[in-house]
C-alpha cells in the first residue's frame, strides 16, 4: 500500500462503476421481483399468488362476505381479511375512497353521476409478499412465509404485540378481539392445500379474482399475467407483493 489515496479512489470507482453497470444491465422490476424467486426452498413446489382484475370487479362484496364466513372472522365492521373499496375520482381531481362494512352490504353510489370523472372497485387482501415487512418485524417468529409462498400466522405462538399490524403497508392485519392474537388472510391455506380455490375466488360472480401457482407456467395466474398489464400495490416499498392487479390506477394506495 504505497499510495493509499490512489488505492482508495480506485476501490470507490470500481464499486460505484460496478453498481451503475449492474443496474443498467438488469433494470429493477418490482412486478417480476416476487415471481423471480419461485419456490425458493422446494423443487417442483408451488408458489401461490393472486390476480385481481379491476375491470371485472362489480363491487358486490361477496368475496369479503365469504372470507368472513369461511374463516370465522368477527362480523363487526372493523375486522377484515379481505374487503372491497370503491374509488371515485371527481371531475375536480378529488379522490374519494369508501368501503362501507368492507363492501359486504353492497355499495351505494355517493357521488352524483355528473361529478364522477371515473370510478372503480378495488378488492384488497394480504399481498403475500416475498419480503414481507410483517414477517421481518415479528419478534417471536409467529408469522412466517411457507415454502409455497403464503404468509401465515402461528396463533399459538403470537404474543399479540401488534408490531406486524403496524408494519404491514397494506393494512391487512388485525388483532382478533376474542383470541387477542393477530389474524390475517391465509389465502385459504386449508382450502388451497386440498386443491380447492380460496373462498373469495370461489364465490366471485364475475371471475375478477384469479388464484394460481406462479410456478405453473400453463396455469391460470401465469396466463392472466401474460394477457394483462398488471401492477402490484405500492411497488416502491419493494415488498415483493404477489397480488397482481390489472388496470390499477395510480390513485389506488
Amino acid at each position: 500500500m504505497k499510495n493509499p489515496r490512489r488505492n482508495f479512489l480506485k476501490t470507490i470507482a470500481t464499486i460505484t462503476g460496478g453498481a451503475i453497470a449492474a443496474s443498467v444491465a438488469e433494470p429493477f422490476n418490482a412486478l417480476l421481483y416476487a415471481s423471480s424467486f419461485p419456490g425458493k426452498n422446494v423443487k417442483g413446489g408451488s408458489w401461490y399468488g393472486m390476480g385481481i382484475d379491476i375491470d371485472k370487479c362489480i363491487g358486490c362484496g361477496r368475496c369479503a362476505d365469504a372470507c368472513k364466513k369461511e374463516n370465522n372472522v368477527p362480523r363487526e365492521p372493523f375486522f377484515f381479511r379481505s374487503w372491497v373499496e370503491q374509488y371515485t375520482i371527481k371531475n375536480d381531481g378529488e379522490v374519494k375512497v369508501e368501503s362501507p362494512n368492507g363492501g359486504i352490504d353492497g355499495f351505494k353510489q355517493s357521488v352524483p353521476d355528473e361529478e364522477v370523472f371515473k370510478s372503480f372497485f378495488v378488492p384488497k387482501m394480504c399481498n403475500h409478499c416475498y419480503k414481507s415487512p410483517c414477517v421481518q418485524v415479528c419478534p417471536v417468529g409467529a408469522t412466517f412465509e411457507t415454502r409455497d409462498g403464503v404468509v401465515l400466522v402461528d396463533d399459538k405462538y403470537c404474543i399479540g404485540c401488534r408490531y406486524c399490524v403496524q408494519a404491514c403497508p397494506y393494512g391487512c392485519r388485525y388483532i382478533h378481539p376474542q383470541r387477542k392474537v393477530v389474524d390475517k388472510c391465509t389465502l385459504c391455506y386449508h382450502r388451497i392445500t386440498k386443491g380447492m380455490t380460496p373462498a373469495c375466488v370461489e364465490v366471485c360472480p364475475n371471475g375478477a379474482r384469479i388464484f394460481g401457482d406462479l410456478n405453473d407456467k400453463n396455469g391460470a395466474l401465469i396466463k392472466f399475467l401474460k394477457e394483462h398489464t398488471c401492477l402490484v400495490l405500492r411497488p416502491h416499498l419493494n415488498t415483493g407483493a404477489k397480488v397482481y392487479y390489472n388496470s390499477l390506477s395510480t390513485e389506488v394506495r
Partner: peptide, 27 residues
C-alpha cells in the same frame, strides 16, 4: 417447540395447524 426452525424461523407444526382449519364453502 420441537418443530421450530425445521423450515425457517417459525414452528413448522403451525403450517399443519393452518391446513387443518374447517372448510365451510364446499364448491
Amino acid at each position: 417447540p420441537k418443530s421450530f426452525g425445521k423450515y425457517g424461523h417459525y414452528r413448522a407444526d403451525s403450517v399443519e395447524e393452518n391446513k387443518s382449519a374447517a372448510v365451510n364453502y364446499a364448491g
